[in-house]
């Protein structure tokens, strides 16, 4: 036991410097004025932005649900293919990730613009033009496009490790395809679902690039709000920190609610009926 403590030491230092201390600094800024006195004014002011926060949570939630809906079947199908096809599919998933994030989002701008590719294509058939850019739909689309791989990869990983003899065992005991899914596949992939949801939801809720580029000025999200406190001429790191802190707490609550829901399920399955 004592031996294994020393190799961990550099990592503990690393985590302290780059994770714990910055968190304390965020909290410090959130509860102080620009002259360094204690205040809760910043937190109270966050209240003004509740609609923005709710909208951010909602859009991120929708994007996460869509990613799960698209990613789950895809990951399952991929995990059942032969290793060559698997490798190719995995490549195709990862390929866009090697392209710059801004570039990917820009390309959606040119596709969705009022006189963009999609509208011009539809125009050939006399349909449209549609108002696609600067809508919530465009923002969600951008989130799904950018973060879908983060859903697929953890799902694919757990599905590759899944024991398929359990599927046969369940069928043998009388489980129809739906029951096989709910009783065997779902519990075995729950960890991947949780990871995937976290990996998509957290960056989605705080994104500001996607909402800026595809949502225009009209669809302001909480990420934009924070960015504005630091980046523009009304520099206010205290309010920015306060919003960040509140957002972090909300995300933590969301995640723990999700974990709660999951362990509830397992408990029900595993409970002894006596």
């Amino acid at each position: 036991m004592t031996k294994s403590r020393y190799p961990a030491f550099p990592y503990i230092v690393f985590m302290a410097i780059f994770i714990v201390i910055p968190l304390i600094m965020v909290a410090y800024f959130a509860f102080t004025t620009n002259t360094g006195e204690f205040t809760i004014q910043n937190i109270i002011r966050v209240g003004d932005y509740v609609p923005v926060i709710i909208k951010s949570l909602f859009l991120a939630f929708v994007a996460t649900v869509i990613c799960l809906g698209l990613g789950y079947p895809f990951a399952y199908i991929m995990s059942r293919k032969t290793s060559n096809i698997r490798r190719t599919m995995f490549m195709l998933i990862m390929l866009p990730m090697w392209m710059n994030f801004l570039l990917r989002t820009y390309s959606w701008m040119t596709i969705l613009e009022n006189n963009g590719l999609l509208n011009r294509f539809l125009g050939i058939f006399g349909i449209g033009p549609f108002e696609m850019i600067n809508t919530q739909g465009a923002v969600v689309l951008g989130m799904v496009y950018d973060y879908l791989p983060f859903m697929i990869v953890p799902l694919y990983t757990v599905m590759m490790k899944m024991d398929h003899s359990l599927v046969q065992a369940a069928q043998d005991l009388g489980a129809d395809p739906f029951q096989v899914f709910t009783h065997v596949i779902l519990p075995q992939t729950m960890q991947g679902i949780k990871t995937g949801i976290t990996m998509v939801f957290v960056p989605s809720v705080s994104t500001f690039v996607i909402s800026r580029m595809l949502g225009g000025g009209s669809e302001l999200m909480v990420g934009d709000l924070i960015e504005m406190q630091f980046g523009s001429n009304n520099y206010n790191p205290n309010l920015g920190s306060a919003i960040s802190l509140v957002l972090m707490i909300i995300v933590l609550i969301c995640m723990s609610v999700m974990n709660q829901f999951d362990s509830d399920n397992i408990d029900k399955e595993g409970r002894i009926a006596i």
């Binding site: 024991d163 003899s165 359990l166 046969q168 065992a169 369940a170 005991l173 009388g174 397992i266 595993g270």
Partner: peptide, 28 residues
């Protein structure tokens, strides 16, 4: 398979790891 009146004891047992002994037996 799920409609056949036969049951199988698998070579590697294939017990459900997320369920305890009672729930494994009760599964069917």
């Amino acid at each position: 398979p799920y409609k056949r009146e036969v049951n199988t004891v698998f070579q590697k047992y294939a017990l459900f790891p997320n369920l305890n002994v009672y729930e494994n037996i009760a599964f069917g």
